[in-house]
């Protein structure tokens, strides 16, 4: 008995290490690249040993990109700020609209309810490019091209269905009797929603918000087509590193590291809400 479990442990360890290496190696390599100059990165064979430099980060923060053919102005920090602004605002609006809507879909049966919910989800089926061409024409006519408002609106296509469908499931998992009990105790419908439904669905709301934020953050095509350099997020801004005189791998790596940081921080922060097993012990079952 003992020996088999020992072998089992070793095998399991080896398998886990393989998986970890497979997934984490690229990230680790990017992190190393961000501290190297372009020459060091492109050297063959590649090496783990180099003299670390902060020049990539310095270039990104000052906005001066030194290439072989001269100095280029880039707006990376502005792009980063745009990403934060666009994603935060989009998710906030999507939560404000999506959570009550999800509650309605979860709790009330109304005419066309399922159809509306499905239509909202179907926004996610269409390839973005299919929607983009007509959308860009509308946006030009409405004067929304190259505005934050316009982009945040389009981002609802990403965030709203996600939040709606994830949070709906969480609301459906709350026993309606818990809400009934609060109402019979004398509380209005609105208070029941705020005091009972929202706190109990909090893990779901946190998960949906986080996912929506990541999807908004990583979006590329919407901003590429509907916004100019001034309003573009990092994903689009990164294109600036592909210069006439070559690709600036070091800066790209540093840009990636910088642009991953906010989502990573958010994910770590949201984690505690995700694992919160709040509904435990609420009803017998």
């Amino acid at each position: 008995m003992e020996s088999t479990s020992f072998i089992e442990r070793i095998l399991r360890g080896a398998a886990l290490s393989l998986i970890v290496i497979f997934f984490l190696f690229p990230i680790f390599w990017i992190l190393l690249m961000s501290f190297q100059t372009n020459e060091e990165i492109l050297r063959i064979p590649p090496s783990l040993f180099f003299t670390p430099t902060l020049s990539n980060y310095a270039a990104l923060i000052t906005g001066k990109l030194a290439t072989v053919s001269g100095t280029l102005d880039i707006a990376f920090m502005k792009n980063l700020w745009n990403s934060v602004l666009l994603s935060t605002a989009s998710v906030a609006i999507a939560l404000a609209l999506g959570v009550p809507a999800a509650y309605a879909f979860a709790r009330f049966k109304f005419r066309l309810g399922e159809d509306i919910a499905f239509t909202l989800l179907s926004f996610r089926f269409a390839p973005p490019l299919l929607v983009l061409l007509p959308l860009s024409l509308y946006f030009q006519a409405l004067g929304l091209t190259d505005t934050y408002v316009g982009l945040i609106w389009v981002y609802q296509l990403i965030a709203l269905p996600l939040i709606l469908w994830i949070v709906r499931g969480y609301f459906e998992d709350i026993s309606p009797d818990i809400e009934h009990a609060y109402r019979v105790a004398g509380h209005s419908w609105g208070r029941t929603f705020l005091r009972i439904a929202i706190p109990l669905a909090r893990p779901g709301i946190a998960a949906a918000g986080l996912l929506a934020f990541i999807f908004c953050w990583n979006n590329f095509v919407f901003a590429l087509i509907l916004a100019s350099a001034d309003k573009q997020p990092v994903t689009v801004g990164a294109l600036a590193f592909v210069t006439a005189s070559g690709i600036q791998y070091g800066q790209i790596a540093a840009a990636i590291v910088l642009s991953v940081t906010p989502t990573l921080a958010l994910a770590l922060y949201a984690q505690r809400y995700l694992v919160e097993g709040l509904s435990l012990g609420a009803v017998k079952g």
Partner: peptide
């Protein structure tokens, strides 16, 4: 509306508010 009927009810599955203490549960009425 249920809140205006002035009835008390105990549910089969208890339906306690999981995020509130027993005191707050009882006090909710």
């Amino acid at each position: 509306a249920p809140e205006a009927r002035g009835v008390g009810m105990a549910f089969q599955n208890f339906a306690l508010f999981p995020h509130m203490s027993a005191f707050d549960n009882v006090a909710s009425a």
